[in-house]
Design a protein around this nucleic acid. Structure first.
Lengths: 110, 110
DNA sequence: ATATAATATTGCAATATTACGATAAATTAT
DNA sequence: ATAATTTATCGTAATATTGCAATATTATAT
């Protein structure tokens, strides 16, 4: 095997899992944090910010883009990447909801 | 290669990535949601809730536990699993912080 | 003591991920 | 036109993940 059985789970579960998986690598967390830090999103220097080779960074960017976490537009011979606010709000809402439910649930047995 | 270069990133980045990675599978999202749904955390029927074989579920539970997302205590011949509220608050805080920063940053260029 | 029940571990095959050198493609500068 | 710059893609090796059958472990019930 090795392939995830996505068809046995709900769309929402698969969606959250896909987003989480995309963030499941420190390089991709670092990319997100860098995109958040720089004020403009015309950023052609992500490679220099990371301790990884250019093809590796390009691949990580592609994964973040595939998951919908970032958007990228061609800007001359550079590429303008930035975080998709909508998707991040979705993640915030998801974890916020869980945290709230956990707080209400006072049965702290473990 | 194939191994993540964790030593090149900050502890915080690695920590968030580890948590996200653990949640990066629909079965593990489903497990978290089930643990959230049931009121008591003495739950010996996680396997029946999932469309996966028992060893597979056990492995997913182990990964969630390794990441620190859930706690498990032996309760007779069953196991009492439940979500670690602290860790989930950490995730909520992390994504909440990003979402807030994105909102303030009005340079929506992409 | 033996059987039953619940969970974990082992071993393994199929597949996915990570990383990077080499190379390609596209744009800008000279 | 040619060179330099930036990003993407291809190919490939090393490693990790996913899933499950078989088996082990541990606790309860008979």
């Amino acid at each position: 095997m090795g392939a995830t059985k996505t068809d046995h789970f709900t769309d929402k579960q698969n969606e959250i899992a896909t987003l989480a998986k995309a963030l499941g690598h420190p390089a991709r967390i670092a990319i997100m944090e860098y995109l958040l830090k720089v004020d403009t999103c015309i950023c052609g220097d992500i490679v220099n910010e990371l301790p990884l080779a250019q093809p590796t960074v390009s691949q990580h960017l592609k994964e973040l883009k595939n998951a919908g976490l970032i958007k990228g537009d061609i800007e001359g011979n550079k590429i303008c990447y930035c975080i998709d606010e909508k998707v991040l709000n979705k993640l915030q809402a998801y974890f916020g909801n869980i945290a709230t439910k956990l707080e209400k649930k006072k049965t702290d047995c473990c």
